[in-house]
Computed example of a mutant assay.
Amino acid sequence: MTTKRRLCTDSFKVVKKRRHVKREKRPPSPPQNETETITEQELELQELKQFDLDWKYGPCTGISRLQRWERAQVHGLNPPQEIRELLLRTNNDPQFTRSLWSDYPL
């Protein structure tokens, strides 16, 4: 008594692959928000976020940006002087004084 072998194709439909047709390349569309200008405050906040993300000045959780800058200076890591001047100029605004990670619990 011989048994008939069952193939995978017996249960599933055979699908033939289609060859891709080359499409004409279109020029990239221009950016939508090109007319928006970045304010000076947004640029300053971007600089401070980059300072927060630069690990060569040490960790930034649990302390203010100015404390981190001063600690890096004490340890001879030469943090950017522009960051210190910006922090001293905006020392009353928590958006500038608190680090990027201050919204996350320790």
Rank of each mutant, 00 (worst) to 15 (best):
F12S: 07
W69D: 02
D103G: 14
K16N: 13
P79M: 01
E85Y: 07
Q46G: 08
E44L: 08
P28H: 05
P30K: 14
Q50F: 05
E44C: 07
H75G: 09
R18Y: 08
P31L: 04
L86W: 04
L106T: 12
L87E: 07
P79L: 03
E82L: 05
S64T: 15
Q32L: 14
F12P: 00
I83V: 15
W69A: 01
F51C: 03
G62W: 06
F12L: 14
L86N: 03
L48G: 02
I38G: 01
E82R: 08
L77T: 00
I38D: 06
H75P: 00
F96P: 06
R89D: 10
Q67S: 09
R19N: 14
R98H: 15
R89Y: 04
V15H: 09
D54W: 05
S102C: 08
S64D: 09
R6A: 08
E70V: 08
L7R: 06
G62K: 09
R68S: 03
K25N: 06
I38L: 08
P94I: 13
P31T: 08
S99I: 10
F51R: 05
P30R: 12
D54K: 04
L86D: 04
T3E: 11
I83G: 01
G58A: 03
E47C: 04
P80L: 05
E34I: 00
Q41S: 14
D10W: 06
K22L: 15
P30C: 00
C60D: 12
R19A: 12
R71T: 00
G62C: 07
D93N: 15
T39Y: 06
K4T: 15
D54Y: 03
Q32M: 10
K25R: 13
M1A: 09
V15G: 05
M1E: 06
T9S: 10
E36L: 09
E34N: 08
L77D: 09
S29E: 14
Y104D: 14
L87W: 07
E34H: 08
Q73T: 13
N33W: 04
L88R: 14
W101K: 13
Q50Y: 11
L77P: 01
D103K: 15
L106F: 05
H20G: 11
E85N: 13
L87G: 02
W55T: 03
S29I: 03
R98M: 15
D103V: 12
